[in-house]
Structure formats: structure tokens, C-alpha cells
Simulated assay, not measured.
Amino acid sequence: MASTGSTNLKLRDQVRRVIRLNRYSIRTEQSYWYWIRFYIRFHGVRHPQEMGPKEIQEFLTWLAVERNVAAATQNQALNAIVFLYDKVLGIPVGDISGTTRAKRPPRLPVVLTHDEAMRLIAELSSPYDLMASLMYGAGLRVVESTRLRIKDVDFSRSIITVRDGKGGKDRTTLLPGPLLEKLKNHMGRIQAEWKMANPDYWVPVSLPFALARKYPNAGQSLEWQWLFPSHDCVPDESGNIVRHHIHTSSVQKAVKAAVKRSGIGKAAGCHTLRHTFATELLRRGSDIRTVQELLGHSDIRTTQIYTHVLGQGFAGVSSPLG
């Protein structure tokens, strides 16, 4: 955005400030700025204050018709633009009902059998095997598994706390029994290195929002250490060097490669393990409301898609063939 000059730099600062005041996740911040910048560039780097419903409709329609984006992608762009006008600029969006909407074709998620999931996990090396096991055994999203900290695993209550999940929500989910010893050993190694003052732990871990200012030593405390740390140190939003968790793309690449080696023959990835968690729980008789809570779905209709994957959405109707 160099060609936009100081005006758009100021706009980005405004967007960042309002997003953080509303405590949105860093992923939402990145996504929203991506679409806001795309919208501005699409209209020849005009300032959003000079545009309105007509330009918004043109951009969203172009995404649907010319770029052929998915409905979820168009909705994400719309949410970002509405946020910009409503929350940042304080300008009503106006009537954009004439926008051509991307179609939302009904698709069932790819799921694995239990044996296929275990074959996939067996193809992974440490720590990716443990992360994949948590995606399948606890229903975690890939980003949720990478963001786990030592304090999020509660062995006494057999629960995992997912913080700042999708939609900025916290939730608890199952701590799978078969992973207890593996997790204890994994966390024990981290604790031992931390106690020995391994140079990796001299650099504080990244912390959410203003926590680093409120608790200056929290980034070097044991409970805030990443469960799956990266060895790379990067600057945070304030320019301070911090240690981050394993990047989601590393996990995704490892799982994709494991799918090929396993010979499963399905277009599977990290999220497939979460889908399989849900279908396995329902297949084994778990209540759909409980599965909804474990997955962190705000709408039960999202969870109900898994009943169709299992073929349980036909109200007891059987084929006339037999």
C-alpha cells in the first residue's frame, strides 16, 4: 500500500486500534485488513469515505461473478467492509441488497474411519503426531492446537481449555485418556528445559493483547509457555522479540504428507480430523448438544451436518429395496 501514502497508514492504525478495543483475534485483524486493502485497491486506491453502497456492491459482486469465490469468502469480505464503515469510520453502509451473492452449494465434509485416522497419525513424527491426536481426540482446529499453552491442559479434571477460539470464544473440551502419558512426558521435557534455563526460554513467549505490559514476567513463566513452541523468534506488534508457537502451515504440510503415505485415498487434511472427531462421537451415541459444545459451534445447525454424514438425517426412512 505504499502508493496510498500516509492517509491509508492512518486508516490501518484506526482499524487496528478498533479491532483490539473489541478484542478480536489477530487472525481476524489480518483477515479484515486484507479485505479492506483489497476493496481500496479495487477502486483505484480511493479512500473509503469517498465511496458507499454502490462501490461496496460492485466489489462484492465482482468477487462472486469474476473471482467465483465461495460464499464464506464473500461473507468474510462483507464483514470486513461493514466493520470498517460501521465501527471505524462511523458511516452507515446503506442498502447493498442488490449485491450478487456467491452460491453456497451443500457439501458434506470428508471424514475418516477411526482406523484411517489412527493410520494417518501413525505416519507423523513428533510433535505433529501429538497435535494430530488432539485434533482427532479433542476436536481441536489446527490453529487451536498450535496455540495451546502449558496452563491450558488440566490433568486433574481431564480437560483442555481452548482460549480465544473461533469468534473469540473460550471453551473446554475432552483431554483424551490415551494421550495422558504422552502429554505428561511432552510437558515434562518442556519443564525440564525451562528449569535448566535453556537459551530458548530466555526469550519470552508472545502474549495476548496488553498482558505483557500488565504482567512483565508472564512471558517467561512456565504456565504461559507454548505447548508446541517454534524455535524461531520474531518481533511482536510492539517490536519486541518473542518466541511464537509452531506455525499452522507446518502442521498442515506434515498432515498432508502423512495422508499420502498412509494410503487412505481421501482428500483429507487437519480439519478432517476435527470432522472425524464429531462423527465418531455421534456414531458412538453422544448427544448432539454435547458435541456442539465440544466443537464450539454457536449454531447447532452447523453440528447437524455430521448427522447427514452418518446417514442419520432421514427420520428413520429406509430404502424400499429391503
Rank of each mutant, 00 (worst) to 15 (best):
H231D: 11
L21I: 13
T279C: 08
I91L: 11
H245R: 07
G94M: 07
A102G: 07
I264K: 00
P208Y: 15
V251E: 01
L21G: 05
F155C: 06
S221T: 14
Y85A: 02
Y136S: 04
D129C: 04
L134V: 03
P176S: 09
T290L: 14
H245T: 03
G94N: 11
G311T: 12
A315S: 13
W202M: 11
V317R: 06
L60N: 09
I190H: 05
L63M: 13
Y201M: 07
R104Q: 13
G263W: 14
F59C: 01
S3A: 10
G44V: 10
R261D: 03
V18G: 01
Q49Y: 03
E181L: 10
L282E: 11
P127R: 09
V205K: 01
D164G: 06
A197H: 14
V234S: 02
Q312F: 09
S125E: 15
Q74G: 10
L321S: 12
A77F: 08
G165F: 06
R163S: 00
P178E: 09
E280M: 12
K260E: 13
G52V: 06
L282F: 08
E116K: 02
S125I: 04
K266S: 10
T113S: 15
T28Y: 12
A80K: 03
G188T: 10
G311L: 11
S126D: 15
K214R: 13
N75V: 10
R189W: 04
S6E: 15
A278G: 04
R17M: 12
G265L: 09
E66I: 03
G137Y: 06
G94I: 07
G90H: 12
G5R: 14
V255M: 07
G165L: 09
T161H: 05
V142T: 09
N22F: 06
S238F: 14
S319I: 03
R119L: 11
H297W: 07
